[in-house]
Amino acid sequence: IDANLFQHSLYLEKFAADKGLKLAKLIIVPTASMGFYSKKIHSLDELKKGDVITLSNDATNLARGLRFLQSLGLITIKPDLDATKASEKDIVDNPRGLVFKPLEAAQLPRTLDSVTASLVNGNFAFAAGLKLSTALKLEILDENLKNVIAVRADDIDKPFAKDIKAAVESDAYAAAINAPGSVFSEFQKPEWMKARA
């Protein structure tokens, strides 16, 4: 594989460090954000004590999910949360008495039939046929949580890598992303792309 597109910068950096790989970020691309999905409630106000919420169990996305829940006012987490070692033990206040169940990220959409809600990463929501517009809430992505195209560090200046970057920066790519009715039109754009609009 010469390039991939499946992770955000935080995940890429941790994975590369853990595996001893020399990988490099080529370019940030539009990204489907994490969503708070439910088939049982229509508003966060309906959440009650004991309601189960599933979220990703890998450390960086678990930390991300906890920060998202905090931004929604549902929990308070430790202020010095370590994104590489996060767990539900980092919750310091859970006023509604919600139950959080970390699971493999790819399984989260399937849990919606049995739990109150789930925090589903955009790529898994997309793969499961969930529309971003059906989420009760969507995460506002920091730049380091937007997906990147990654290559081997040694390949960053090779012609194929430059060609991929040029394709992503092209007017044709922007037109495809921004096309009305396109699923990609709901994706959050990277800062470089917003600056060109």
Rank of each mutant, 00 (worst) to 15 (best):
S118I: 02
P79Y: 01
V52R: 10
F6V: 05
D157H: 14
L145S: 04
L55H: 09
K48Q: 11
K131H: 10
K131S: 13
G65R: 00
F184Q: 04
K48L: 00
D82W: 08
G97L: 07
I91G: 02
L119G: 01
A59E: 10
L119R: 02
T31A: 06
L138Q: 12
Y173E: 01
I156G: 03
L26Y: 04
S87F: 15
D51F: 10
K22M: 10
N4A: 04
S33L: 06
D51M: 11
S38V: 05
D142W: 02
R110Q: 10
V92Q: 07
L55W: 08
L47P: 13
F124V: 02
R152V: 04
G20E: 05
K85P: 09
F6S: 08
K194Q: 13
R196E: 07
D2K: 10
P190F: 03
L55D: 03
K158F: 14
D113S: 15
K25R: 10
I164W: 13
L145T: 01
T116F: 10
Y173H: 06
G50P: 14
T111N: 07
G20M: 05
Y11S: 05
L66M: 14
A24T: 02
S71L: 12
L98A: 05
A63E: 03
G50I: 11
F124P: 00
G73P: 13
E191T: 11
D82M: 08
A176E: 07
N4K: 06
S87D: 04
A128W: 12
L69Q: 02
D2A: 11
A17H: 14
A175N: 09
P79H: 10
L44T: 13
D2W: 14
E13H: 14
T111S: 12
I41L: 12
F15Q: 02
I91W: 04
P30K: 00
L74F: 09
Y11P: 00
G122A: 05
E143C: 08
K165L: 13
E186A: 13
L66D: 03
L130Y: 11
F100A: 02
D163S: 12
L62P: 02
A63Q: 01
F184V: 01
Q70C: 07
E88A: 09
L44V: 12
M193K: 00
D82L: 06
V99C: 07
I156R: 06
R152P: 05
T31G: 04
V168W: 05
A125P: 03
E169Q: 12
A161I: 03
F124R: 00
F187V: 01
A167I: 08
G35P: 06
L12S: 05
K194C: 11
K162L: 15
A106W: 11
A166K: 15
S87L: 06
S170F: 09
